[in-house]
């Protein structure tokens, strides 16, 4: 890879230490609000997660998840309202069904299936959000880079 020109990026990449990059899908009504709540309460968490907001976790297409992995995500997290609390009646139930499939698929592909996680986080669970992020970053650090991660991606 060519020389690093960007200071912020180099600070992360140049040390040679593995810095996980995690894509997280958050439903607008619960988990995104939970993430906001974590912010409001200043629950500190590692800066490895990039949130993609969707209206409902059931919008998250396997294609989005695969793309994230193929692009080089070390983990993909999906979060939504607790079962029974879905803003759209039963979106999270449907998410759960799809999740089961994708999880099984990753496993069969020979990836660590922990790289995909689904968690229900409500708007008031800022703490849980921060804990989940922290826990996942630790887990991914232990797993090491995703086998699909391309060299040089920051």
């Amino acid at each position: 890879m060519s020389e690093v020109k960007n200071t912020a990026a180099s600070s992360c990449a140049s040390s040679g230490e593995f810095i996980p990059k995690i894509v997280m899908f958050c439903c607008n009504w619960c988990s995104y609000a939970g993430a906001d709540g974590a912010g409001v309460s200043r629950f500190q968490q590692p800066a490895n997660v990039r949130v993609v907001r969707v209206m409902c976790s059931s919008r998250v297409d396997p294609v989005h998840i695969y793309t994230a992995f193929l692009e080089g995500a070390d983990a993909v997290l999906i979060t939504g309202c607790h079962i029974g609390d879905c803003h759209y009646v039963n979106g999270n139930d449907k998410t759960l069904v799809k999740y089961k499939f994708i999880k099984s698929m990753l496993k069969e592909m020979g990836m660590e299936d922990e790289r995909l996680m689904l968690r229900w986080i409500s708007a008031s669970e800022g703490q849980q959000f921060a804990e989940f992020v922290t826990e996942m970053v630790e887990k991914v650090k232990a797993l090491g880079p995703s086998p699909l991660r391309k060299e040089g991606v920051v």
Binding site: V63, Y66, L70, E71, I102, M105, L148
Partner: peptide, 13 residues
Amino acid sequence: NYDISLFHMIRFL
């Protein structure tokens, strides 16, 4: 230029 084509990933699923 993905390591595994998205076509197959989606088909597998």
